[in-house]
Amino acid sequence: MKIAIASGKGGTGKTTLSTNLAHYLATAGNVVLTDLDVEEPNSGLFIHGKTIYETDIFKKIPLWKSGNCLLCNKCKELCNFNAITRILDEILVFPQLCHSCHACSELCPTNSLPMENKILGKLQQKRYDNLDFVESRLEIGEEQAVPLIAQTIDFIDEKFHHDYLKIFDSPPGTSCPMIEAVKDADFVILITEPTPFGFHDVRLAVEVVRKLKKNFGIIINRYGIGNNDVEEYCNEHHIPLLAKIPNQQQIAKLYSEGQLLWQHIPEVKRELDQVVAYLQNEGLMK
């Protein structure tokens, strides 16, 4: 079972929910938490433990071989991403701009651009208490988050048996990386704040998950601050409101220290139990 945790904007509590829910559920069953916010992976600041496995993740990029190259410029003209240029009698490839479409390589008349592996990021697997944790981190300067997310999900699929509960901490926003992270999920939890910003952004996220035809529910974080717009919206549109995490300064403090909340704050545990009850009721977990 795969559950993706997402939000329309950053800073609404996505990482807080992912880490706490995963760590809590791991006390009772097999759970793996995966941080797919590969540009700014922050779950690892809350989930410690020893690294038990580490691997580089690659993407394919063309590597220029000068030998037979006719300097015909075809590769440069083919590339829609400006990832290839010619400097005097040299062909230069910009790995960060390359989308690995293979067009230049396979259409080169002299096979002068074979595809080679280039490091895209690093995947680390950790074990913390009973929780398995995997995070991938994009190399600095790399912009291709989507292939790293896709390969990380492949790793999870291969390495963890299907009876594992798989929780994905997704990238913020509603653009391609977020879609890549939620498109294979069985259920999506959207977390937001009861404020005008939160309300505006969660509606965008709802549009995305609807377009992807996903089952989903909403959690309100910092409940009690702001207004009732999100709650009314959920009622009106028959969206399950899974939990309301209260607004407490103590939560902000523990978060700032990199601590998990559920063992310290009973209200948080109570709300996590609500989420669990919902998921069980829907047959999404045992």
Binding site: T15, E40, N42, L45, I140, A252, S256, E257, G258
Partner: peptide, 13 residues
């Protein structure tokens, strides 16, 4: 900026 460990981490980058 905000003084959380994730805030510090992101600000440095």
């Amino acid at each position: 900026a905000e003084p959380s460990i994730s805030g510090i981490h992101d600000l440095k980058r």
